[in-house]
Write a protein that binds this DNA or RNA. Structure first.
Lengths: 159, 159
DNA sequence: CCCTATCGGTTCCGTGGTTGAACCCGGAAC
DNA sequence: GTTCCGGGTTCAACCACGGAACCGATAGGG
């Protein structure tokens, strides 16, 4: 399987990975959520090869996850900002961070904490059902195809 | 930066990526959540090189995300099951699927639907605050370091 | 007894993506 | 002029990946 054929799979996870599933891309996005915006800042913080950074930023712009905005003229200089589509990746970042916090935090605890400005508390993300608001457990989820028929485990479609 | 030095970074996201950030690993986990358990089934469904599949499964077992269980003796044959730690990755999968659904579903709609067995509705995952239960927006999150001081944008630590 | 099939891998090699360093280019500052 | 800065592009070397063949234990069929 070639990497770019992922986008053609009938699977939303695969199509997401075709955009952000790269080794470096999620680290770029992490920094983008920390308000890093400039080429050299990404380069310095990540230690990524400039060639690769250039290409990753370009594909993220192509896919509408980042946008290139001139922040000065003469010489014209660009920065990369998260678009609305990019901001929608926040749950992905939060859930990855939370998983790392749970299983890989040392004695010192997680490297950083997240405070919810709305309620003022330190928090972690909880995945809940859009309909009933309850937390979602893996076993409480039934996968169904377009025909609304349940997918049998032994012939499960890509999801 | 070498890929395995990610695990040593003081960043929960980087440490998560050190385990599951590989090109293939999330696809393996997707299938694992769809109850695929055997080597040849992963191989056939993903089209992954056997060499690579073997190595990915081994590292997932090393990291305690999957466990190798003999399902028969003579000849002894193994299958790979999600551990509790692996099941905790469900929010990561759900949020990636939801993002793909939102931005890459064709006219036919998402390839599969998720039904919440608790409430019986088709749903998508919503990331909420563990403390107040409200949905979390990127701008409502304040990053703080171990000292409980807010992290300034221009000197933000890796998160 | 031999041949084949099944499952879960391992070994091999050629190709291609990644890396790190060097180079480039427009404009500003010294 | 010359140097510096931001934002890249070019290039050689390397290592990971893909594909195909092979292996080992066991069961089943002729």
């Amino acid at each position: 399987m070639k990497w770019n054929t992922l986008a053609e799979e009938d699977c939303s996870l695969a199509r997401s990975l075709a955009v952000i599933g790269d080794r470096w891309t999620l680290l770029v996005l992490r920094d983008a959520f920390l308000r890093v915006r400039r080429f050299d800042d990404f380069h310095a913080r990540l230690g990524i090869a400039r060639r690769v950074l250039s290409e990753r930023l370009a594909t993220l712009v192509d896919h509408g996850v980042l946008e290139k905005v001139a922040y000065q003229e003469r010489p014209v200089r660009y920065e990369y900002r998260l678009t609305e589509k990019g901001l929608q990746l926040h749950p992905v970042i939060l859930s990855l961070v939370h998983w790392g916090d749970r299983f890989y935090a040392g004695q010192a605890g997680p490297p950083v904490y997240h405070r919810h400005k709305i309620c003022g508390q330190l928090f972690h993300g909880v995945m809940t059902c859009s309909e009933c608001g309850e937390a979602v457990a893996p076993r409480d989820v039934q996968i169904e195809g377009r025909t609304s028929q349940a997918v049998a485990p032994d012939k499960a479609q890509t999801a």
